[in-house]
Amino acid sequence: MIPLLSSKTFDDMEKNKLHDEVNIAVPAREAMSKVVRMATTAVASRASLSIDDADDLNTAVEELFRSFLSQHTAGEVDFCVDYIFHDDRLEIAAHGCILHNGHGKVGRYSRFLLESLADSVREVTNPDGGLDVVLVKNLPGS
């Protein structure tokens, strides 16, 4: 089971504005997957991740995007992702994504994939009461 956390993590983050953040919002359409990938690669590059790690992260975020696409009508909502640079890790929060704690074949597949590609995966309730999926990738040397 993916642990369901409170919004404490985000509250703490709100109080601490020391971290650089990149936010993107793209229309939930298949054609936008390349934009999401390129943004993720660019962020991974900024975080000095290796090409291997950047590609893993890319695949993980793309999986979140595809999961989001399957849960929403194309073009109706935006897929919003926050990339948060910490000293020792990169956090990626995808808003409005639900993994269903790995229920169903696709859910289990998504969970397995994300857990394999990121250093940690968790679902959190955001300040609006919705669910976000947060991926963490530790940075080299941390």
Binding site: S45, L49, S50, A54
Partner: peptide, 9 residues
């Protein structure tokens, strides 16, 4: 013996 970063490459 490791993958390069984008900056390195």
């Amino acid at each position: 013996s490791r993958s390069p970063s984008v900056a390195e490459i």
